[in-house]
Design a protein around this nucleic acid. Structure first.
Lengths: 329, 329
DNA sequence: GCTTGACATGCAACCGGTTGCATGAAAACG
DNA sequence: CGTTTTCATGCAACCGGTTGCATGTCAAGC
């Protein structure tokens, strides 16, 4: 069902049918009604490709993430979708599998049929990112490239709060259980732990970098106990969850014997005890990035935005005063 | 950079440039090389819309799910993407928010620019689904509509195993905490509970349908306790997790006082106590559905496929013999 | 040596919309 | 009542590819 068939049915020119949908104010209300009615009856839908071809507008966005299945991203995906939906945009989702080449491939495939791109935690080099940003409006999440609009989640601020909170509760020696050494977030978090601890005159022991997982958390427990720490800050919630399980396994009570803090707040209050952690704000980041993108797309003006989302400590039940520990000794 | 500019640069007709990419065997190898070289140098990329307009092929698929953030779906999304990627397709992702109208809207938006659709756990009516399936190749996941290719995760088999296991452990009265009434999975699970219970001569109480969530699980606890059930089967893991928390809150011990079984195995062994649940196979379902779709798209033949993936009970620590309950009475 | 065929390339229509400009009729103006 | 303005609609070019058919060339076949 094409525009010409509708035009023929109504007895008007194709341009009138086109305008009945895209510029109804140009036509008499009566004609608009007649055309729309006929279109409705005939089941006419404007052809997306034809429209995109002549207008250059596709009505699509692309979102590329390293790993859909990582619980950090789904809330972000959701809010990007939601925001795009409000403006009638469709969203392509790409999963780069943490691989820069796959990321490049996806961006190439998408760029021909989208107005803008949200690129989350990219693995690509700065140069390549810049190259894509020159061709299409592009907003970064969790990557700091000067000149390209970016939304950064500063987990350091929340981790610093966590350390300060632990200090205030009387903990003098805390452990940081690292994530992957190549991770920007890990660097950020570890630095925040060390800096805050130094300021507050606390001892810090740091466990070697590892791929974050439930099992990694379990393995970290020995390190914490043997290191004599009374509190542990884990790279992420999954690691913290593994630690919780292993502490329980060994009869070490949390938070009475040892305090545990996670990071990213992806498990909510669903652990037992409910995990004290650092908020993630991934959903907000997605929302802000998308709004930024839509704004750039409409105004065509690229401002050098660097939007930083601070994170905060979310106190639940895996932290308690260190004083309690002394009872056991 | 258009095809004409490349043609002019090389001194050939636009059709030769077109063929250099889509039908190189029609041209002399030398011409193909010359054209490709020039195109490369000029940075020419075929215009996606123009190609789609004249060929009717977009190279896109759509995947619509009720809730991206529901941990059941990310593995499925991931495998659909992966499978699509192998055949150079881009994937639109839609989030229906469990709302049939939103689902309809998304399908309408997508259908103009995709070759096929994977529709997971749709909330739409059979008629609407059929209507869309008539227009575009469409494969369903977790919805059983005759005549439309579908991949079904038979959680019924696993749930039946669960009920049999509970019966074997001495439970005589069990509760089923429902999911959304429009959900095919919910119907299936509830039916499996009722059927197996009837066969084994158990009592069943069923809690009214609801949107599955942690909070819904918390609210379900009163129903279970007041209903006098000694075991509960929840619609999904998230609901079960909420129940676990609320039971703990009320001083009801799991599994000693009451047994809890989840469904979908999305939280693994990370709850406390580790949740007994039913395996999900969502990733496999996504992969199979996408292969089926791609197959239909290429062969243009719609076979009435009904692919069933059986599930199984995964016993962990939230189930125990009912005999333990008597001690408290 | 002339015909036939194979093969490489060009021509032009087509996909289905959008849009600047032209046209014609009715309304407003003097 | 004639002229100008306004407004609704039509015309035709254009977006950038694809593709059936026509054309021209050169080699093989008789």
């Amino acid at each position: 069902m094409t525009i010409d068939q509708v035009a023929a049915a109504v007895g008007v020119n194709r341009s009138s049918v086109s305008r009945a949908f895209s510029r109804p104010e140009m036509l008499s209300p009566e004609t608009v009604a007649r055309i729309r009615e006929a279109a409705e009856k005939l089941g006419y839908t404007p052809n997306h490709s034809a429209r995109a071809l002549s207008t250059g507008r596709h009505g699509n966005l692309a979102l590329v993430v390293p790993d859909v299945a990582n619980p950090f991203f789904p809330p972000m995906i959701r809010s990007v979708q939601n925001e795009a939906d409000h403006q009638d945009y469709c969203v392509f989702l790409g999963n780069s599998d943490e691989d820069p080449r796959q990321e490049e491939k996806l961006l190439g495939r998408f760029s021909g049929q989208v107005e803008g791109i949200v690129l989350a935690s990219p693995r690509l080099s700065d140069e390549r990112i810049r190259a894509f940003a020159e061709v299409k409006p592009l907003v970064l999440i969790n990557r700091d490239v000067a000149g390209i609009p970016r939304v950064l989640i500063d987990s350091g601020s929340g981790v610093a709060e966590a350390v300060a909170y632990l200090a205030q509760q009387g903990h003098r020696r805390i452990a940081y259980v690292s994530g992957p050494s190549s991770s920007w977030s890990n660097k950020q978090r570890r630095a925040a732990v060390k800096k805050t601890a130094a300021e507050l005159d606390l001892d810090v022991i740091t466990m070697a970098a590892q791929v974050p997982s439930y099992e990694a958390g379990q393995r970290a427990v020995s390190f914490v106990l043997e290191g004599g720490a009374t509190a542990a800050v884990a790279f992420d919630d999954l690691t913290a969850q593994g630690m919780l399980a292993e502490f329980r396994e060994r009869g070490v009570r949390v938070p009475r014997d040892v305090a545990v803090v996670g990071c990213d707040d992806v498990v909510g209050a669903t652990t037992y005890p409910a995990l004290t952690t650092v908020s993630n704000r991934a959903g907000e980041a997605g929302q802000i990035a998308t709004r930024l993108l839509l704004d750039i797309m409409t105004t065509r003006a690229v401002h050098d935005v660097r939007y930083v989302l601070e994170t905060h400590l979310v106190v639940r039940e895996t932290t308690a005063p260190a004083a309690a520990n002394r009872r056991q000794g």
